[in-house]
Design a protein around this nucleic acid. Structure first.
Lengths: 291, 291
DNA sequence: TTATTTTTGAAATTATATTTTCAGAATTGA
DNA sequence: TCAATTCTGAAAATATAATTTCAAAAATAA
């Protein structure tokens, strides 16, 4: 055991190859053949793969300095993870002048990881379907957010409003929601934001809307709001960061990506609307004086 | 079972995510987290890693259409081998099922790069100074945003308001701003958001505030709002993405990081305020009914 | 060749992994 | 609110994996 402490399985095999017996060499070669994946299964699988008996496998594991086959396999797993893990050096990314433990760097790590995980889980087909739905000018769009996600709803609304007609922002105060529901019709789309500390009102609104034949698009978190079961499309983002609050960074990323998608889809109309908007800004500039 | 025949574990999870239960989602997220290496060990290891029981793991394996955990693991092994031997093993980052040119991936690349550049440029000392300033309970905080950045201002305000007293959100309508200025006093802090298509009103407000001895903290873009010359602290974020609009993702990241900083700084008070808030939510829940 | 040592795998044993059962917890529906 | 349903994990039962034992096969030495 002593000296082999930190060596890989392959290194140990090479180092001790001379002292291996016939059956052990056969096994060693089989392991090196498709390294390190070859050692994945059970001892039985490994033994069958290389045409030796299970005791031979167990014995070699110990001969190489491991406590037994499971320990050797654990080492192979470690090597496998190292091989797989992204070649993109994780850390040289961030604020170099701040220590690793600075909140900026810890936060950045968490957010990057959230982004990575979120993208892994998003189904592009679903994403495309959402974009198509929101680009359909025959459907009215209603947007609603909760206490914290209100800012997402607001941001989404502001951009959508520029690109197309028929977009409504449902006011944050749920007392007034009944009025909004009156204007929801079959074929309309309700875009709802609901993350952890899910809000019951949002669920109720989704139910009522659903009953009126409205399609629900939901931006929620990795665990999924209760409204998810009513949603035709649900975009889940990771939100955990080293903070007492959850992070909406990835949610905003998805919102912006969807907006970019809709923009591409509707570019012909959007272009002229944006031009008109510019002109309006120029005109109103003169009478916008607050002091 | 039938239709899932040749799908990867990740695909099956995505496909059925909605039908997964709470514990199963937790497990699914854990598996996707470090995919596909996460499924390497025994069922016990996997369950401990994800904080669920072994039966949950076994159940989900079957729910995903496998005969049992060993079968699911075998599939993961197959995928692992494919990943290792494939030259495309590089991009484990983004949405694998979408082509590189899909807007999701292009957007993700841009945002990551923005984040990297932004963090490189941020001076941690300045960041810390901003956190200290905002944690100082002797200073009133005023928050203002523009047409697009309003959602950032709103989000920042919502969180700050929970953590401390003396926080005001300046309404978007600049007609009313004179009234807000009346309440700005020497030593107060004005947190302003102003990105490209800089808004003249924000600059004017900054000037007026400055004249009253208010300290300006500015969230702006890489080129810097005209108000930057009046700002004591200025946090610049990169905002360019493949879209007709600019991205606020990195700005939101900075906002959240600052909030997390203030939260740490003021934790003693914040803690009890958050507890009170929870109680208030519970109390108001009953009369929050919209229909 | 024959005695001795070493190697090897079948079978038995032991340890661990996996599945099943089931009662309590959590959630949902009325 | 309370009953019904669904979910969940502890513990038991079962299945599989890993190790040990040991006799036979191979290799080595005389």
């Amino acid at each position: 055991m002593g000296t082999n402490q930190n060596l890989t399985v392959a290194e140990r095999i090479r180092k001790q190859f001379d002292s291996l017996t016939r059956a052990e060499r056969q096994l060693a070669n089989a392991i090196l053949e498709d390294y390190p994946v070859s050692g994945l299964g059970s001892i039985t699988a490994v033994s069958e793969n290389s045409g030796v008996s299970t005791p031979t496998v167990a014995r070699m594991a110990r001969k190489l300095g491991f406590g037994g086959f499971p320990q050797m396999q654990a080492q192979l797993h470690i090597e496998l993870k190292a091989t797989i893990s992204s070649p993109i050096a994780k850390h040289d990314l961030w604020s170099e002048s701040a220590p690793d433990t600075h909140i900026l760097n810890r936060f950045a790590d968490a957010v990057t990881e959230n982004m990575r995980q979120t993208l892994k889980q998003i189904d592009p087909k679903e994403f495309n379907a959402v974009v198509d739905l929101l680009s359909d000018l025959n459907r009215e769009i209603h947007v609603v957010g909760g206490r914290i996600t209100r800012s997402m709803a607001d941001n989404f609304f502001t951009h959508m409003q520029v690109m197309r007609s028929g977009v409504t922002l449902v006011a944050p105060n749920s007392n007034t929601w009944a009025h909004y529901v009156l204007n929801m019709n079959k074929g309309d789309v309700l875009v709802a934001f609901d993350i952890r500390r899910y809000e019951h009102d949002i669920l109720r609104l989704a139910e009522v809307a659903k009953a009126r034949g409205v399609t629900l698009v939901l931006f929620t978190d990795q665990w999924g709001s209760p409204a998810a079961k009513l949603a035709t499309y649900s975009l889940n983002s990771r939100i955990e960061v080293p903070s007492a609050w959850d992070s909406l960074v990835v949610t905003l990323f998805l919102v912006e990506a969807v907006i970019a998608g809709v923009q591409t889809q509707t570019w012909d109309e959007t272009k002229s609307r944006m031009k008109t908007l510019e002109e309006l800004f120029d005109q109103t500039k003169m009478f916008k004086k607050f002091i």
